[in-house]
C-alpha cells in the first residue's frame, strides 16, 4: 500500500520510539514528543508498540491506495475521511483511494496518525525517527521531514482480520491536556545549588510557553530563577530536564535535546507530565510543583497500569 502525502501541513515527520543506547555517541534520544498519544495511536491501529507513525503540526492530508485501518490521536485532534468528520481515538476503516485529513485544533500541538501495517521506512542508527539537525531518519534516512508528494510504503498486516473488532478509547479516558493541574517536577541535578528563594519563585510563579518551542526544548518566560553556579562541566541531559541559563528563564529539554550540556538544572519534569507539556502551545500558562521521586514513581506506575487495564478492556 502506498501512502501519498497530498499536503504536509506545517511540519510533519516520521517518528517511532527513538534511539536507545546511542546518546553516548552524541545521537539524541528522539522519539515522539507526546508518547502517550503515540502509544494510543499504534494500539488503536492494531500496530505493535514502536511502529513508526506520523507526528504532524498543522493540517495534513494524505491518500491511501488500499483499504486500511488508521487511528488519529493527540491534543484535541480532528479527522475527516473524504470530507466527512470521523471520530478520533478510534480505529477507522479507510477505503482504497480515500483522502485522510487530520490536525490538532491548536496550532503548534501535534496530531498522530498511525496506519496499520508494516512501514517500509529505513532505520538510521536503530530508529526511523527524523532528526533534521542530525540528518538522520525519515523516508530517505537522511533526516528530511515529510513534504508534498512524498510516498510511504506500508505493507498490509496479515495478522489483522477483516472482522477484527474496532478499538475505541472512551472520551472520559482520553488524556487531559489542560494546564489547570501543575506540571510535576522531580528535584534533581543541581537543585541544591539554587537558593530557597529561587526554588520558591519557580514553584509559585506562572510561566508562559514562549514561541521558542521545538523538539529540542521548550523555552518558558516568567520570573527569573538564577542559580549560584557560574561554571560547570557538561553532563548528560535527561528527558524533561529543566535547565536554567544565565538569564534565569527555564528551558525544558525535550526529545531531540543535545546529549550533553553545561547549564545548571533544577530537576526533571515527571514522565507522567512530559507528554502534556510537549503539547503546549505558545502563550499558554503553566505552573510547576515539586514532587519527590518516590511519589513520581508511584504516579507513573498507576498511570501505566491504568493504561494497560484500559487496553485490556478495549481488546
Amino acid at each position: 500500500m502506498r501512502i501519498n502525502v497530498l499536503s504536509k501541513g506545517l511540519f510533519s515527520l516520521i517518528i517511532d520510539k527513538g534511539r536507545v543506547g546511542k546518546q553516548r555517541e552524541g545521537f539524541c534520544e528522539s522519539g515522539p514528543m507526546d508518547s502517550n498519544a503515540y502509544d494510543w495511536a499504534n494500539f488503536l491501529a492494531f500496530n505493535l508498540d514502536g511502529t513508526p507513525c506520523i507526528e504532524a503540526i498543522g493540517e495534513m492530508q494524505i491518500r491511501v491506495d488500499e483499504d486500511c485501518v488508521i487511528a488519529v490521536t493527540g491534543r484535541e485532534p480532528s479527522l475527516d475521511i473524504d470530507g466527512i468528520a470521523q471520530a478520533v481515538y478510534q480505529s477507522q476503516k479507510v477505503s482504497a483511494g480515500a483522502t485522510i485529513t487530520f490536525k490538532s485544533a491548536l496550532l503548534g500541538s501535534k496530531a498522530y496518525l498511525a496506519i496499520c501495517g508494516n512501514w517500509q521506512v529505513p532505520k538510521a542508527v536503530g530508529s526511523a525517527c527524523t532528526v533534521v539537525r542530525e540528518q538522520l531518519g525519515g523516508l530517505d534516512g537522511k533526516g528530511c521531514v515529510l513534504k508534498d508528494g512524498d510516498c510511504i510504503e506500508v505493507l498490509a498486516n496479515t495478522r489483522v482480520k477483516d472482522n477484527a473488532k474496532m478499538r475505541t478509547l472512551a472520551q472520559q479516558h482520553i488524556d487531559d491536556y489542560g494546564f489547570i493541574e501543575s506540571i510535576r517536577v522531580i528535584p534533581g541535578y543541581q537543585f541544591t545549588s539554587f537558593s530557597t528563594v529561587a526554588v520558591r519563585t519557580f514553584e509559585t510563579s506562572t510561566y508562559t510557553v514562549s514561541s521558542s518551542i521545538d523538539r529540542m526544548g521548550f523555552r518558558l518566560t516568567g520570573e527569573s530563577v538564577a542559580s549560584d553556579i557560574e561554571n560547570m562541566r557538561s553532563e548528560a541531559i535527561h528527558l524533561g530536564a529543566i535547565q536554567v541559563p544565565g538569564d534565569g528563564q527555564p528551558i525544558v529539554m525535550m526529545r531531540d535535546r543535545q546529549t550533553l550540556g553545561g547549564y545548571p538544572k533544577l530537576g526533571c519534569v515527571s514522565p507522567c507530565d512530559i507528554s502534556r507539556l510537549a503539547q503546549a502551545v505558545p502563550g499558554e500558562k503553566v505552573n510547576f510543583v515539586f514532587q519527590d521521586e518516590e511519589e513520581a514513581r508511584a504516579d507513573w506506575l498507576l498511570m501505566t497500569s491504568r493504561r494497560r487495564r484500559l487496553q485490556g478492556e478495549i481488546l
Binding site: 536507545v20 543506547g21 546518546q23 553516548r24 562541566r233 557538561s234 553532563e235 548528560a236 535527561h238 546529549t259 550533553l260 514522565p271 521521586e293 518516590e294 514513581r297 507513573w300 506506575l301 501505566t304
Partner: peptide, 22 residues
C-alpha cells in the same frame, strides 16, 4: 537498565521505573 550516558566526570544512569527504584 535503559541507558548510560557518560560525560567528563559524571555518568547518567536511566532505568525502567516499572522494574526498579533509584
Amino acid at each position: 537498565l535503559r541507558e548510560c550516558v557518560p560525560s567528563y566526570d559524571s555518568l547518567l544512569i536511566i532505568f525502567d521505573m516499572a522494574l526498579i527504584d533509584s
